[in-house]
């Protein structure tokens, strides 16, 4: 009798624990399907200032591909970190101006600074859908053999850089590109 009376409470506790665990997970963080797969081929046109870039430009080195836009407020959050990384020349950062007008993206870079070695426009989400982009900012890390090794969803803060991305970039640079 005592034992069976405890069953509903145990069930409730189990369901509650399951739901509580669910609350700690962010449904926006979709796991990337492209990890360890080759970077898709693309050739992005330039935004107003400077040249665009293609997948060939990224090939052969450890690089960051950062999806940003002038309409993206979280991109402002990570922008100072990107500027510091660009100044330190740790790894080349390529910019993908996503679903943006070229002149708006260019004006945004003029206003806040341009951390990118090259910036291309992806107005129709061609590259974004190839990469499985769900929002901005997102950053992909490519290794020397041209495979995607990591996807950062959301801004690269100093913390994310120091704890996750910098160690990964360092270890990828040790690898010999094949």
């Amino acid at each position: 009798m005592r034992f069976s009376a405890a069953i509903p409470f145990a069930l409730m506790a189990l369901i509650g624990a399951g739901l509580a665990l669910g609350l700690t997970r962010d449904p926006r963080q979709l796991p990337s399907m492209l990890i360890d797969r080759p970077l898709p081929a693309f050739d992005l046109p330039a935004i107003a200032n400077g040249g665009g870039f293609s997948s060939a430009d990224v090939a052969g080195k450890v690089a960051l591909i950062n999806v940003f836009a002038s309409w993206c407020s979280a991109c402002r959050v990570e922008h100072p970190t990107l500027m510091r990384l660009a100044a330190a020349k740790r790894a080349p950062i390529y910019g993908v101006d996503w679903k943006d007008k070229a002149e708006d993206g260019a004006a945004w870079l003029r206003r806040y600074g341009d951390p990118y070695v090259a910036t291309g426009l992806d107005f129709e989400s061609r590259l974004a859908i190839e990469l499985g982009v769900t929002g901005a900012p997102e950053t992909y890390i490519v290794d020397k053999s041209g495979r995607i090794r990591y996807k950062q969803i959301g801004p690269i803060t100093d913390e994310v850089w120091a704890e996750t991305i910098e160690p990964l970039v360092a270890s990828l640079e040790q690898e010999t590109g094949s």
Partner: peptide, 23 residues
């Protein structure tokens, strides 16, 4: 629609959903 998550790309007005419809 990967932006709104509980709508189909047919229902969604998100720009990414529009691009996915085109593709």
């Amino acid at each position: 629609c990967v932006v709104c998550q509980n709508q189909s790309i047919d229902d969604s007005n998100a720009p990414l959903a529009a691009d996915m419809r085109v593709i």
